[in-house]
């Protein structure tokens, strides 16, 4: 048994050995990026949900509230980041399971590349959506008569800005994740 095993071993080693150490490294990086993504998504959601502000408007003589729920763009933003947060939990677990069972890694990498790029689209569009509305809130627009509101609701706008910055960071992390999966898939193609 040992004699038949030995001749095949070196050849086997030549072909199969290079990927595993590389993938182990990449998956550790993958997990840390996914944890970062989770942190970013949760931070973005918490910051925007706590942005509600009530203020007395002297011109109208009444108390008015600014809430993120008032604009569908911000609701979409919150939903997208909740989805991204949940997704990051699931994929962190999946990525950890790949570290313990490296033989499944190619299949998982393909799935990661698929879903990461979808979630990237989701988070990027949510960032664009909220950013577009927040910019009008900050600057106003004379052409269509939309007045700026950030001079009245300072805390609301600061929260929005913080949340948008974190969301931009989350999309950057997602781009890195897609790059990582695509790159490690490319590395598996034999030369």
């Amino acid at each position: 048994m040992a004699s038949t095993d030995k001749p095949t071993d070196p050849e086997y080693n030549k072909e199969a050995r290079p990927p595993p150490p590389a993938t182990v490294n990449y998956f550790a990086f993958d997990v840390s990026l996914r944890v970062l993504l989770f942190a970013a998504a949760v931070t973005a959601v918490v910051v925007i949900v706590t942005s509600d502000q009530t203020k007395f408007i002297p011109m109208l003589g009444i108390l008015r509230k600014a809430k993120f729920k008032h604009s569908p763009a911000f609701v979409y933003f919150v939903v997208a980041h909740c989805v991204a947060g949940l997704y990051s939990i699931i994929t962190t677990l999946a990525s950890l399971s790949v570290i313990s069972k490296p033989n499944l890694s190619t299949k998982f990498l393909l799935h990661f590349a698929f879903w990461d790029v979808l979630i990237l689209g989701l988070v990027a569009s949510a960032t664009g959506t909220a950013g577009g509305v927040a910019y009008v809130g900050l600057k106003g627009n004379n052409h269509v008569g939309w007045v700026k509101i950030c001079n009245n609701y300072d805390k609301f706008c600061q929260h929005l800005a913080g949340s948008l910055a974190v969301s931009l960071f989350a999309s950057f992390v997602l781009v890195l994740l897609v790059w990582l999966s695509v790159y490690s898939l490319h590395c598996r193609v034999p030369k």
């Binding site: 008032h70 569908p72 989701l122 569009s125 949510a126 960032t127 509305v133 999309s171």
Partner: peptide, 25 residues
């Protein structure tokens, strides 16, 4: 993917605001 999706998001949000307006602000 990221660039075009975010551009679409921004334009969609403003277009929706143009269609519906926002009574709160």
């Amino acid at each position: 993917v990221a660039l075009v999706f975010s551009g679409n998001g921004a334009a969609t949000a403003i277009a929706l605001m143009g269609y519906k307006g926002n009574s709160h602000v």
